[in-house]
Design a protein around this nucleic acid. Sequence first.
DNA 1: CGGCACATTGATACCGATCAATCGGGGTGG
DNA 2: CCACCCCGATTGATCGGTATCAATGTGCCG
Lengths: 189, 189
Amino acid sequence: MLEGWACRYKILPSGTRQIMAFLMPGDACDLHIKLLAEMDHSIQTLTPAMVATVSRADMQALMSGHPNVARAMYSAQLVDEGIMRAWIVSMGRRSSVERVAHLICELYLRARTIGLTGDDEFALPLSQLLLADALGMTAVHINRVLKELRLAGAMALARGSATILDPVKLIQIAGFNENYLHRRLRKAL
Amino acid sequence: MLEGWACRYKILPSGTRQIMAFLMPGDACDLHIKLLAEMDHSIQTLTPAMVATVSRADMQALMSGHPNVARAMYSAQLVDEGIMRAWIVSMGRRSSVERVAHLICELYLRARTIGLTGDDEFALPLSQLLLADALGMTAVHINRVLKELRLAGAMALARGSATILDPVKLIQIAGFNENYLHRRLRKAL
DNA sequence: CGGCACATTGATACCGATCAATCGGGGTGG
DNA sequence: CCACCCCGATTGATCGGTATCAATGTGCCG
């Protein structure tokens, strides 16, 4: 992804949707995906977006000719896996308020590391329905949770952008620990 | 993992535990984990186990000297990611009965591809508490769900082994689609 | 100006958590 | 060898958080 947002998702037989990941600029969709015979989920853009495609041959040449690039891509993939695990933890053991707060913390930090944040707000082009489908809840309930977080003075969400009103409080509500994003430098070789 | 079972897990400040993955023989814990500075979760064996460790240098030599091996490992990692996504879907959008059934389907198939299943049963060395922590539910509730599945004639779980009473019914309850495990052959190069 | 998607709020139902008690079996110490 | 104990399994009663159903508000776009 060069610009814009996208998401991975799956639709169940019952018609409900579950979003499994948000893709932001700098994220790679599928490094080795071509190794598998079949795609097991769908990907969709959420905003107008710009996407780069790299041919299998080019990618192979890049990876074998530039070990540092290869290493960076593997690191990125490890981070993505860490994010997925964090989502599993959220869905399994966090209440809805904690879940929402946690996701916002994550998205804020990810946006910040790619330079897409303002002082205490950032562009969040997600409808409440999308957030609900990402967090395993209902659009109605997400609305109530957002209201609660707003009244608590932790954060507010309005027309495509989120504002962090009180970072400390938000982090505390979420029980957020940023270590899984591995923003601190990777181990030197 | 050469023998035995293990799991990835995280403990929250509140003391609750969430299991994020089960590792069975043939699963690799951490291919490139050394690229990151810090581990963001814990791993624990669930049975007596045998584990192989490969030095960074050996691994690097193996991967660069044997492209087929490297490809196989990347495929395996992609499958692991697919499994994580399936867990996210389960936790987000499946009821507790569906979740339990889905996990059993997954574990049965994974056990079967490595030759660890009997005719319609397989060794499942997981207490109900462990299952609960993997599925984001309570041990009490998992017990009731298991009873329900047993009475429905779908599956039964007893002292370390699970029995599939009615595969079709179980798959139907779970809404299980095995494509995410990618057991069908990978694409030929 | 009309329509449509999204946001918001209220009332009610239900799934799964929680609290509590009992049971069963295998290992351990006396 | 037996009694005890402890952990995991099981069952019941109750509580609470989210889903569900329903209605209304609001802003954007054609």
